[in-house]
Design a binder for these strands. Structure first.
Lengths: 163, 163
DNA sequence: AATGAGTTACTGACATGTCAGCAACAGGCT
DNA sequence: AGCCTGTTGCTGACATGTCAGTAACTCATT
């Protein structure tokens, strides 16, 4: 066993700062979103992902995969959002196991009302603080990490029940 | 009301990738840590923060502030860690309200055993994927965001019960 | 058609976070 | 001493995530 390669000073500083940024940024954006629209970040993710598909209709399985959620998490969360009238659930026509999640009219309206202040919050708390180069580097960094970790890369099942 | 300044293509891509990186990176590092040491990231944060203070003794209030946690969250989590024998709780001598959190021998041992594989995981999943410049830019980005959002900056109480 | 392995979604039990409320205390003031 | 305001930490109720288990279904093969 080789001796541990500890982080160098700059590496340790970057790692700590990254973690602190994550905590503060998530919190602030979630608070802004909730204050402006009464939505959680997860609610917003569901609504905006749904709206990106023609007809705003997704097979539950695909929606879970897109969100990097387990199907269990999706079932719980969609159940709550259905109670609030934001989304709709119905069985699939062709596959008896399936479920189709779709936006309700109200869900669409809430999303349209939520988007502008949410984008403003993302700008205010992150994007507009950075130079163009910094945004590009952030993208590069994230791309590298995702390339290593993305489920398409193989051995990282997000769903405990998945094959 | 001015029309919404939507994100540009590169900005939107960076924001989405950042969010996906966050999800995947957190998950992977948390899984590695749990597999290697039976700790959660929050457990590790508590233990490592405690160990950074001479005597590994912290006033609860200060520990919560350092971790950016509410005092309520700290009370719950420390209660659980106390049950597991990782930390110790005792009243303060001078201030009858206070509580002192300290590392137990076992807590110190668990931390020392957990640190090397955790650092390796951080390297494997983030640091070693990046160039030196990218690490430096990540640090700069995080620094800017923190400067804007840090509680020291004023109006962001993390504890709902704080003044 | 019948079997059996894999897929899909839901559910219940549990872990962990949030907030509101509370009890005990500190410290300045009268 | 007595009072008042603010601080500190704990608790209970609740929201949201995890995992294991299950029911219903699909599809290839027999």
């Amino acid at each position: 066993m080789p001796s541990t390669r500890w982080l160098t000073g700059p590496q340790e500083r970057a790692w700590r700062r990254y973690r602190r940024m994550r905590t503060l940024l998530d919190l602030q954006i979630a608070r802004d979103l909730n204050r402006d629209s009464g939505l959680s970040e997860t609610d917003y993710d569901v609504l905006s992902t749904l709206s990106e598909q023609p007809g705003s209709r997704w097979r539950a399985r695909d929606l879970a995969a897109q969100l990097l959620w387990s199907t269990s998490r999706l079932a719980h969360h969609v159940g709550r959002m259905e109670q609030r009238g934001l989304v709709n659930r119905e069985p699939t026509a062709d596959d008896g196991r399936g479920a189709i999640i779709s936006l309700t009219e109200q869900g669409r309206a809430v999303l349209h009302q939520a988007a502008p202040p949410h984008v403003a919050s993302v700008r205010r708390n992150l994007i507009d603080l950075l130079t163009e180069e910094e945004v590009a580097t952030l993208d590069t960094i994230a791309e590298k990490v995702i390339a290593k970790l993305a489920p398409s890369g193989g051995t990282t099942p997000l769903d405990p029940n998945a094959a």
